[in-house]
């Protein structure tokens, strides 16, 4: 099994800040793994995700995503890598309100030629694949044509998941995707997400502050355990 994400001695400090937000000596996630990253709010989880997604660059250290050293790539190459190989799900308000559900899903291919190509190899157009994926995630054909605001929060998150999954990117990052959902919807959502990730062999990095979700995952990483900054802060 090859590595999906590898961090070595990664440190990150916001411009102008005095202290590091992140100091991660070592972290490795294998391809195909479904990992829960748990930590309290405001501890730097989102910052770590933005490093992995290639939005920001580590101040120090080595960060590899899918064998690509992000620190060696320029902004455009990192944006391209994210478009092609990373599906990202926010906590909520994942969708552009002025597009239909199916158009929101198809948006995933807007900047991602590799995703479009993979769909082509399966003989699917972007719109066909988007509709098929939404159907699998339980949205009716009529619901797929609705605008994002007209959908329930649970439906919106499934549309967001579909967008992240479309064209089988290697890595799905979900940043607290269930925090706006109730218990029943939450479990259903996680289940469907697992299913689809497994079906297309995408690695899943699921971030939450909610410890009760741990039971769904084979591997759970406590954020405070990998981030040295937290421990130092306690000593001071």
């Amino acid at each position: 099994m090859s590595a999906c994400i590898t961090l070595e001695h990664v440190r990150f400090r916001w411009p102008g800040a005095q202290h590091h937000t992140l100091d991660i000596p070592q972290l490795s996630i294998q391809r195909g793994e479904q990992v829960l990253l748990r930590g309290p709010s405001g501890c730097g989880k989102s910052t770590l995700l933005s490093l992995i997604a290639g939005i920001h660059c580590p101040t120090e250290g080595q960060l590899q995503v899918l064998n690509q050293p992000l620190t060696a790539l320029n902004q455009r190459q990192r944006d391209r890598l994210r478009a092609n190989e990373i599906g990202y799900i926010f906590q909520q308000f994942n969708l552009l309100p002025y597009l239909s559900a199916v158009a929101n899903v198809a948006l995933a291919c807007q900047f991602a030629p590799a995703r479009r190509q993979r769909l082509q190899q399966q003989g699917l157009s972007v719109d066909q694949a988007s509709a098929a994926l939404l159907t699998r995630l339980g949205l009716s054909t009529a619901e797929q044509q609705l605008h994002a605001q007209q959908l329930s929060v649970g439906q919106q998150q499934r549309v967001a998941a579909a967008r992240a999954l479309l064209g089988a990117p290697a890595l799905i990052i979900a940043d607290e995707p269930t925090s706006a959902l109730d218990q029943a919807h939450r479990d259903a959502f996680i289940e469907v997400l697992f299913e689809q990730c497994a079906a297309q062999q995408s690695t899943l990095l699921f971030v939450t502050h909610d410890a009760t979700l741990a039971k769904h995952f084979a591997r759970v990483i406590e954020f405070t355990a990998i981030n040295a900054v937290q421990r130092e802060a306690k000593h001071v």
Binding site: R76, R80, R82, N84, Y88, F93, Q110, A112
Partner: peptide
Amino acid sequence: RREMAILRAIGAGPVQ
């Protein structure tokens, strides 16, 4: 800003 963040998430660069 939310719209921009979504576009960034699906791979839009600052140039886009």
